[in-house]
Simulated scan of single mutants.
Amino acid sequence: MSVPLRPIDQQVVVITGASSGIGLVTARMAAQRGAAVVVAARNADALTQLVAEVRGQGGRAVAVVADVGRQEDVARIAAAAIAEFGRFDTWVNNAGVSIFGEIPEVSIEDMHRVFDTVYWGVVYGCLQAVEHYRARGEAGAIVNVGSLFGDRSTPIQSTYASAKHAVHGFTDALRVELRHEGDPISVTLVHPGRIDTPYNEHAQAYTEAQPAHRGMIYPPEAVAEAILGAAAQPVRDVYVGAQAKAVQLAGALVPRTVDWIMSWYMWPTQLDPNREAVPRADSALWHAGYGGQERGSHVGWHRKGSWTVAATLHPVRAVTVGAATTVLGLLSPRLLRR
């Protein structure tokens, strides 16, 4: 079923978790491309600064201080969008927080809190979006930000990974139900790999070492590109980084091998032994963390973009560029010999 979505410069885009990281970058990029943005998070100061920045550049924005783990707060986000702009066209469920610690160490209360934000926040946001699109009788988009750990769980972040698994399952079910009912609603699941955001600084750490990605790391702009691409053209899934797709495939095809690899690989690549972890009282699990920052403090190979995003959203362009690069690579030795 084809879903006719508006171009980004004609859209009102709701973004949760917009005070830092992926949400902040997505809000800035959406506003720069002409969209009106409704930004939501728990950090009031960061949202106020973001709205002032967007408006100062001639854009349209409104902020809603909200905890997506509370259904009434999510309802206020939708109400604010309608009150300010009369509608919204894309709803981006992005808010998230993690815990780093082995399963027996993590409190049940902290586990519940992660699920409130990571899973129930998505459910509440999707319900608001579906209700609004059905009431308007027009097409709309829902973009849920999942994770490579929603395709294959990881040790140390078991609660976060489990919540993302739930997000992936809910998204699949929602997509099929909407199709069955004939609703013109595009539902996209974004699968980010390891992304350079303050996610590690905001996490609740039961570990002595500071949580940090160590390895291949992608910029938040790559995820924002995936989100905004999905807002304007219906697409089922977007993998941000080849690592995300590789983990999904390997987990499905050779799960025992992946178990073995993760048993030794995931401890050193999720922690920085040279730094002490942020105290749990200062984490963003139970209260707003610091805002206004796009990037975190990760240690690794920082990529400039993601070919998987380009290949999904712009397949013709990706094939053309790839073919041209291959041809130039084959011809260059011959040209140098002349």
Score class of each variant (00 low, 15 high):
residue 227 I to D: 00
residue 146 G to K: 14
residue 220 P to N: 07
residue 242 A to C: 03
residue 210 Q to G: 01
residue 98 S to V: 07
residue 190 V to E: 00
residue 210 Q to V: 02
residue 23 G to M: 02
residue 239 Y to E: 04
residue 127 L to P: 03
residue 257 T to V: 15
residue 152 R to S: 10
residue 233 Q to C: 04
residue 120 W to A: 01
residue 51 V to R: 09
residue 280 R to F: 07
residue 218 Y to G: 09
residue 6 R to W: 00
residue 108 I to F: 10
residue 221 E to T: 15
residue 192 P to Q: 05
residue 111 M to T: 13
residue 140 G to Q: 08
residue 249 L to A: 15
residue 27 A to F: 01
residue 321 V to T: 12
residue 46 A to Y: 09
residue 238 V to K: 10
residue 89 D to S: 12
residue 59 G to R: 06
residue 213 H to I: 06
residue 1 M to F: 08
residue 234 P to T: 05
residue 338 R to F: 14
residue 228 L to Y: 01
residue 229 G to F: 02
residue 35 A to N: 03
residue 253 L to I: 15
residue 322 G to I: 09
residue 99 I to Y: 03
residue 197 T to K: 06
residue 223 V to E: 07
residue 31 A to M: 03
residue 174 L to M: 10
residue 268 P to G: 13
residue 278 V to T: 15
residue 242 A to R: 12
residue 7 P to L: 07
residue 337 R to V: 10
residue 247 V to M: 15
residue 304 K to P: 03
residue 267 W to Y: 15
residue 165 H to C: 10
residue 58 G to C: 08
residue 80 A to R: 13
residue 18 A to G: 07
residue 148 L to I: 12
residue 234 P to C: 06
residue 242 A to I: 12
residue 154 T to L: 11
residue 119 Y to L: 14
residue 326 T to F: 13
residue 168 H to D: 10
residue 100 F to Q: 02
residue 4 P to N: 10
residue 139 A to E: 00
residue 65 V to E: 12
residue 56 G to Q: 10
residue 182 G to I: 01
residue 99 I to G: 00
residue 219 P to D: 09
residue 280 R to I: 11
residue 11 Q to L: 07
residue 196 D to F: 00
residue 151 D to R: 15
residue 142 I to W: 00
residue 290 Y to K: 11
residue 270 Q to P: 07
residue 82 I to V: 15
residue 200 N to L: 05
residue 1 M to E: 10
residue 308 T to G: 02
residue 202 H to D: 04
residue 309 V to G: 03
residue 19 S to R: 06
residue 156 I to F: 11
residue 68 V to E: 05
residue 79 A to D: 14
residue 286 W to C: 09
residue 177 E to Y: 08
residue 197 T to W: 03
residue 268 P to M: 11
residue 235 V to C: 09
residue 175 R to W: 02
residue 181 E to F: 00
residue 124 Y to V: 01
residue 32 Q to S: 13
residue 5 L to Y: 06
residue 325 T to K: 13
residue 232 A to K: 04
residue 174 L to C: 08
residue 308 T to S: 13
residue 108 I to E: 09
residue 155 P to I: 07
residue 309 V to D: 02
residue 3 V to Q: 04
residue 259 D to P: 03
residue 89 D to Y: 07
residue 317 R to C: 03
residue 327 V to H: 08
residue 114 V to W: 02
residue 317 R to F: 13
residue 104 P to D: 11
residue 288 A to Y: 06
residue 73 D to E: 11
residue 199 Y to C: 02
residue 175 R to V: 02
